[in-house]
Amino acid sequence: MADIKVNPISNALGLLRVRVKRGINLAVRDVKTSDPYVILRLGKQKLKTRVIKKSLNPEWNEDLTLCVTDPNEPVKLYVYDHDTFSLDDKMGDAEFEIRPFLDAVNMRLEGLPNGTVITKVKPNRKNCIAEESCIVWNEGKVIQNMFLRLRNVECGEIELQLQWIDLPSSKAL
């Protein structure tokens, strides 16, 4: 009798590509600098950028792709300082809702001029957005650029860009 394999992607809504662009004014955790990296979590998924050595303003420009099954679950972000001989130091955390982005994707827009603003997400007490974030149409795709202010730390922001990837077999949003 053959084993039945459950495909976790079968109940996926699609893929969220998160480009971790850069860190801005991150906290010092090693004498005068830090060796930062970012961890993204969505549900049980956990993805990590590479470590940037000796930088408080690191540029990752790294794409991390999460499988979205629940549009109401926030993406959580953690920044750490890599240490060789001890536990890595926390450098702050943040989270953001993907619902406004998914609502824009779900509009199924076509043929708009590049740079058309679909909607805006304003900073408030419940989110970590540092400044107004625009969800825009660019080259046939819905894109959201955002700056997240890190919590539980003295300073620091992370710049991200979101992009949606439809799966051929995915459920509609």
Rank of each mutant, 00 (worst) to 15 (best):
Arg99Val: 10
Leu77Lys: 00
Cys155Leu: 08
Leu160Ile: 06
Val38Asp: 00
Ser86Arg: 11
Lys76Gly: 13
Glu110Pro: 11
Ile39Asp: 03
Lys120Tyr: 09
Ile9Leu: 13
Lys141Asn: 12
Ile135Gly: 02
Asp83Leu: 09
Pro123Ile: 08
Asp89His: 15
Lys122Tyr: 15
Val153Trp: 04
Glu97Pro: 10
Ala12Arg: 00
Lys54His: 12
His82Arg: 04
Asn25Gly: 10
Ser34Ile: 01
Gly14Val: 06
Ile143Thr: 02
Thr84Glu: 14
Ile158Gln: 01
Lys5Ser: 14
Tyr37Val: 07
Leu42Thr: 11
Asn114Gly: 08
Asn11Met: 15
Trp60Leu: 12
Glu110Ile: 12
Asp3Tyr: 15
Gly115His: 05
Val68Thr: 01
Asn11Phe: 15
Glu157Gly: 08
Val105Gly: 01
Glu73His: 08
Phe101Met: 06
Val68Phe: 08
Asn106Cys: 08
Val142Phe: 03
Asp35Pro: 04
Asp166Trp: 11
Asp83Ala: 06
Leu42Ile: 14
Glu139Cys: 12
Lys21Met: 07
Asn61Met: 09
Ser10Tyr: 08
Leu16Tyr: 02
Gln161Val: 08
Asn25Met: 11
Met107Gly: 07
Asn152Thr: 10
Ile135Lys: 01
Leu109Trp: 04
Glu59Trp: 15
Thr84Phe: 15
Asn138Lys: 10
Asp83Gln: 07
Asn152Ser: 12
Ser34Leu: 02
Lys5Trp: 15
Lys120His: 06
Lys126Asp: 15
Leu64Thr: 02
Gln144Asp: 15
Asp3Glu: 15
Met91Lys: 03
His82Tyr: 11
Leu87Gly: 05
Ala104Trp: 02
Thr33Ala: 00
Thr116Asp: 02
Ile39His: 07
Glu131Asp: 10
Glu157Val: 11
Glu139Arg: 09
Arg19Leu: 10
Leu109Asp: 07
Ser86Lys: 11
Ile143Gln: 01
Thr84Ser: 14
Asn152Pro: 11
Leu150Gly: 04
Leu56Tyr: 05
Lys21Gln: 07
Lys54Glu: 11
Pro123Val: 05
Arg22Val: 05
Leu167Ser: 00
Leu150Phe: 07
